[in-house]
Computed example of a mutant assay.
Amino acid sequence: MRTLVLYDSLSGNTEKIARAIHGTALEHDLDSELVKIDKSLDLDFFDYDLVFAGSPVIDWLPTKKMMDFIMARMKHYNSQGLIKPASPIIPGKFGVCFGTFGGPHIGEREAQPMTAWLRSFLEHLGYIVLDSWHVIGQFSHKEDLNAYGRLGNIQYRPHAEDVLEVQNRVTGLLASLEAWRQ
């Protein structure tokens, strides 16, 4: 199963999660690529069977770089006739959206619009999006924003337990997909 872990990261939180996903995919002998968004990136989502797409939450949405890239891909696919009315499912194409969110915010609900945005893109392509994962990450290095918000003290997040939870989710997801394929 050819796997893509596509992400953007500003402070390293989302990159830490993306690397955990990628590493776990490699441990399960998947052909996996870890790709950070950049302006010169040219990739074809249809080359991958399993796509993990992630970003930090910025004003309830992915980063501008991620959004610009996704919109450019959407326009390209649409011009090629690959975006179909009613977004028919392409058998064997799966996705997971993930994101990190920080302390001055209201919690996981703050991250849900961002992963919903990414999910909509993948579903327009015909992917079955299996899940959305939201991981707490410290907000920059501003102690007061990390220690006293609604989420409690989130300094040094994502920490080892957060990473382990993501690795376990990847392992479980891959086991489910393997069972489905048999």
Rank of each mutant, 00 (worst) to 15 (best):
G81R: 07
I70L: 12
R73Y: 00
R73D: 01
P91K: 14
G95E: 04
A72K: 13
S79Y: 03
P91Y: 09
Y77G: 04
F98T: 08
N78V: 02
M66Y: 01
R73E: 10
P88Y: 11
F69C: 02
D68C: 00
L82R: 15
P85L: 14
P85E: 15
K93Q: 06
P85I: 12
A86G: 08
G81C: 11
N78D: 15
H76E: 10
M74V: 02
F98R: 09
P85Q: 14
I90S: 04
V96W: 03
K64L: 02
A72G: 06
K64C: 00
I89C: 12
V96D: 03
K65F: 00
S87A: 15
L82Q: 10
I70F: 03
G92K: 13
Y77Q: 07
L82T: 00
R73K: 15
H76I: 01
H76C: 02
Y77D: 05
I70A: 02
K75R: 14
S87W: 12
K84A: 11
G92Q: 13
G95N: 05
Q80N: 09
K65E: 07
V96P: 07
G95M: 05
P85H: 13
S79T: 12
K65V: 00
I70M: 11
V96R: 01
S87F: 14
I90H: 05
G81S: 07
A72S: 12
D68E: 10
G92N: 12
A86T: 14
P85Y: 11
F69T: 02
I89S: 14
M66C: 03
I83E: 02
Y77R: 06
D68T: 07
D68Y: 00
M71S: 08
P85W: 09
P85G: 09
K93M: 10
K64T: 08
A72T: 10
G81L: 12
D68Q: 08
I90N: 03
M67G: 00
K93V: 09
M74A: 11
S79W: 03
N78S: 15
F69W: 09
R73I: 00
L82C: 05
P88E: 11
I70Y: 03
P88S: 11
M71Q: 11
N78R: 13
I89H: 13
Y77N: 04
I83Q: 04
P88G: 10
R73G: 01
F94C: 04
F69H: 04
F94W: 15
N78P: 02
I70Q: 03
K65N: 04
F69A: 00
M71A: 07
F69L: 03
M67T: 11
V96I: 15
I83L: 15
T63D: 01
G92T: 12
M71T: 06
S79N: 13
H76A: 09
S87I: 07
S79D: 13
M71L: 12
I89F: 06
I83W: 03
G95K: 03
K93P: 03
A86R: 14
